[in-house]
């Protein structure tokens, strides 16, 4: 019983660490074209890094049919746009100050983050 309890608590700790504390690596918006794929309930890559102070373009392709994935919101930049199915969509970002900008679907189940450095 003790073992089960320890395992259960460890599982809770693991959930906290995996979903909240762990910060995955960011994909860099570099020379090669970076395309964010919207598929299976996720943005991939979901964390991207862009340089500060210059306008950039981020491309999305939606392969997910669920209606939630259709809308892309970047609330801090007042961007809300529709991602067509299986078609590349370019979102233009203005020159940004350093910081973190979240992007997500209408229901926030698909989540990603743009880090401006």
């Amino acid at each position: 019983m003790l073992l089960i309890n320890i395992a259960g608590l460890a599982l809770i700790a693991l959930i906290v660490w995996w979903f909240w504390l762990y910060k995955p690596k960011e994909a860099e918006l570099g020379e090669s074209d970076l395309v964010i794929t919207v598929e299976n309930g996720t943005y991939s890559p979901s964390r991207i890094k862009v340089p500060t102070g210059e306008p950039v373009e981020i491309k999305f392709i939606r392969k997910d049919q669920s209606p939630c994935s259709e809308t892309l919101l970047i609330p801090e930049l007042q961007i809300s746009d529709t991602l067509p199915l299986n078609k590349l969509k370019t979102i233009q970002l203005p020159a940004l100050a350093a910081g973190e900008y979240a992007f997500h679907c209408q229901m926030q189940m698909y989540r990603g983050q743009i880090t401006v450095k």
Binding site: E39, N40, M109
Partner: peptide, 19 residues
């Protein structure tokens, strides 16, 4: 299947959703 694939992909992405 779509729930399981979605769940796995988001897990790898350190996120969790309805799936």
């Amino acid at each position: 299947k779509h729930f399981f694939v979605g769940a796995w992909k988001s897990f790898l992405n350190h996120s969790a959703n309805m799936d």
